[in-house]
Design a protein around this nucleic acid. Structure first.
Lengths: 251, 251
DNA sequence: ACATATTCGAACAAAATCGAACATTCTATT
DNA sequence: AATAGAATGTTCGATTTTGTTCGAATATGT
C-alpha cells in the first residue's frame, strides 16, 4: 500500500466517522504507528485534517454559520410550528420555491433529508441546504446584503424560466386587503414565485397577520394557503376570502 | 505485448481496484519493473493516472473526491502568495469574475475592503463576501454539491449577459498545450468567464503547472496572465507562448 | 498532586522504489 | 541478411519510504 492510498483511506474514514485514532489506523491499514503518525502530520500540515492527540479529526466546515440565524431565532417556536405543517405539504420529488425571510428559512431544518428540488434566492437557505441530499437551484442576480438574498431583474427572469409544484412565500404583512411588503424588490420576487408555482403557501406567524406594511403588492388571491401558528378569530376575514388557512389546532 | 496493450491493462486494473502496485504489475503483465515504471510515468504525464511511490492510483480517486473544504486549506501559503499578487491587479470600481476553486476562493481575504463588484458562481466566495463592502452578483443555476458552485446552462447564459474588467480563473492543470479541467461543467463556466472579461488571470499554484488533467478545454491563448507562487524554468514553455507570467520573484 | 499509561517525535536502520546509463532484444525496412 | 530505430531489460547508486528504539511530552485515573 502506498502512502497516497493510505492517506486517502484516512480521509475516507474521517469523512464517515468524523474522527479516528492512531491505533485504529495502525490495525486498519496495517502500518506501523510511526508511519501513520507521519501520514497524519503530513496531512495536517496541508490542512487536510485536524491533528489531535492519538488521532485526527475532520476539518470543520468552511461555511460558517450566518449572523442571519440570530434573527431567525426570534419566535423560533412559532416558526417551528409553521414549518412543521409546511413540510407536511411536500412530497418526494417535488420542486419547491423558497422565498427569502426568516420564517421560510426555518423550513430548511424540516426538509434536509427529503429528495426534492429547491429553487431559492435566499443565501441562508442555500448555505443551510448545501450539504444535504436536497437538490438546489440558486436564483442568480444582484445580491442584497441587507436581506441576504438575490433580487432584481435577472432574478425575476430566472424564476420565470422554471416551474414548481409549491411556492413557500414570506411577506411583511397580510390582511384581507392583500399582501404587504417593505421593499419592491422582495415583492417582485414573491410575485414571480407565485406565478410559476402550482400551489402557493404563505408562511406567516401571528404577528404578521392584519399588519399592513409599506405597500400592498398583491391581492390575497395570489395565494391559496396560509400556514400560521395560532388559530383564532383574527383569521376569519382571511378565511372569508376563500384562503385555506392551516393551523396546528385545525389539524 | 505492446506498450499500448500494457497501458490499457493498467488502466483496466486501476478501474477495478482503484490502485495498483508496481510489483503487482510486474508479475501480472510479465514485464520488467523498469518497463512498468516507464509506462506509469508516461501515463501520469498525460494525466491518465496518478503516480505514487510504488504504483499508481486512479485519477478521480484523489482529485475528484476531495471535498472543497479540504482543498481550501491545502497549500495555503502558496495560495496567499498568489492572491496577494492577484489583488494588486484590481482597481477600485472594477467588476471582476471569480471562478470556483480553492485558489480563487482565497482571493476573498484580500478584497474584502475593496469597492468593487464581484460576479461569481462559487458559494464559498459568496458567503465569504456576503458581509463586506464588496458588491455581489450571484450566478444562478443548478448547484453542484461537490464543487460548492453553480454550473450548467443557466449559469453560462447568466455570465454571457455581463461584462467584467478582469476574470480570475482556476483550472486543474495548465501546460504549454493549454488549459485542463476535470469536468466539462467547470470548463464551460471558465470559458464563459474568459469570453466576457477584458483581461484574464489564471491563478495556479506550482502543482498545477505542466499537469495535464482529464481533458483539455482551451488553448493557452485563452488567458493573458498567469499568476503562480514560484518562478522557475518550468514556466519557460508557457512564457514562450506569450503569456505574461507573474511571480513574487519577478516582481 | 501523583503515578500510570499513551502518545509523540527525533534519530537511526532497513527496505523498497526510483531513475540514469548502458546492454539487449525486437521490428520494420531495405 | 543487414541495419537502424524503438522498445525492453539490467545494473547500480541515489532517493524515498517504512520500521524500530527510546526518552520526552501529553493524557488519564486515583
Amino acid at each position: 500500500m502506498t502512502s497516497q492510498s493510505r492517506q486517502k483511506k484516512i480521509l475516507d474514514l474521517l469523512e464517515t466517522n468524523g474522527e479516528v485514532s492512531t491505533t485504529r489506523l495502525v490495525t486498519e491499514l496495517s502500518a506501523s504507528d510511526m508511519t501513520i503518525r507521519r501520514d497524519l502530520n503530513h496531512m495536517a500540515a496541508q490542512g487536510l485534517i485536524l491533528r489531535t492527540h492519538g488521532g485526527a479529526m475532520k476539518v470543520d466546515l468552511l461555511v460558517h454559520k450566518q449572523k442571519f440565524e440570530n434573527k431567525a431565532a426570534a419566535n423560533l417556536a412559532a416558526k417551528d410550528i409553521i414549518c412543521q405543517l409546511a413540510a407536511e405539504q411536500i412530497r418526494e420529488g417535488d420542486t419547491i420555491f423558497m422565498d427569502c425571510g426568516s420564517t421560510v428559512f426555518r423550513l430548511c431544518h424540516f426538509i434536509r433529508n427529503k429528495r426534492i428540488k429547491v429553487i431559492t434566492n435566499s443565501l441562508p437557505v442555500v448555505v443551510e441546504l448545501s450539504n444535504t441530499v436536497v437538490s438546489l437551484n440558486i436564483i442568480g442576480g444582484e445580491f442584497d446584503h441587507d436581506r441576504q438574498a438575490v433580487h432584481g431583474v435577472m432574478a425575476k427572469e430566472h424564476i420565470l424560466r422554471y416551474r414548481a409544484s409549491i411556492a413557500f412565500l414570506g411577506v411583511d404583512g397580510v390582511s384581507a386587503k392583500g399582501l404587504f411588503a417593505n421593499t419592491e424588490l422582495e415583492a417582485s420576487i414573491t410575485l414571480a414565485f407565485a406565478a410559476r408555482a402550482r400551489t402557493t403557501y404563505l408562511l406567516c406567524d401571528a404577528s404578521k397577520i392584519d399588519r399592513e406594511a409599506y405597500f400592498k403588492f398583491a391581492d390575497l388571491s395570489l395565494i391559496q394557503n396560509l400556514i400560521t401558528d395560532r388559530n383564532g378569530p383574527h383569521l376569519a376575514s382571511i378565511r372569508k376570502k376563500g384562503i385555506n388557512v392551516i393551523t396546528p389546532e385545525a389539524k
